[in-house]
Amino acid sequence: MKIIVSVKQVPARDSALRVNSAGKWLDESDITYEMNEPDAYALEEALQLKEKLGGEVVVLCAGPQRAGQTIREALAKGADRAIHVEMDEEGPLDALATARLLAKAVAPESPELILTGLQSDDLGYGQTGVILAELLGYAHATIVMEVEPQGSAVRVKRELEDGWFQNVVLPLPAVLTIQSGIKKLRYATLMGIKKAKTKEVKTLSAGQLAADTSSTTVMDRVYLPQRSKQTQILTGDAKQVAHQLVEKLKFEARVL
């Protein structure tokens, strides 16, 4: 089975986020980056499908040059080759523009499955996979917990709300957006890291792909949310804070 996994590089979870001077995006000067977590689960699912069924796992990533590090990580974990759509725009594209670029890069590959995370940890649009499916004319399913290939179709378990689930059968080729936490993530082995250095990474520039990347949504401003609720922040060392808190829970909130 030929599987494309679309991954994104995002600021690491513990990053101290500062807005840039233009107030439009982050000050990226001292941020470290990592693979978007739901995408890491999509990659894991793809690698396990390949182990079961054989075939090829191709990593697809749109991002600036630094995204090469995330691509290497995916190759070190076991992906066979990669396509890097290199972008150098200031600030992020909207989901439609990104998906248009990805669709151009994917089309000549004719994969059977495309897997990606259900959303990104930075912009959180949760749309790229669905739009990609629409642009390519593929069927899709979102928030997928289990993947069971059935010849020319795939049966997936989708998460619905409030503890409900649903199995859906869809014809291949298809796009699946993968929920976090569905499998245990593997680490890259030393051998994997070594092998990754020799694997093919095809770099395509956004210009080369001739996709329409005009924005249909405009992000005017990025800022820290204003606090509307009066939160009492307790200060002091651990002991002092604990003492104040217990007093407040007893005498102010009267809940202890």
Binding site: V130, E134, I143
Partner: peptide, 23 residues
Amino acid sequence: HTYQVRDFGPKLSTRFGKALISD
């Protein structure tokens, strides 16, 4: 912004050449 809308909303807006302003 339900799970169902997450499933089809972006597909629909793409038909009109638009991104969904989600969430």
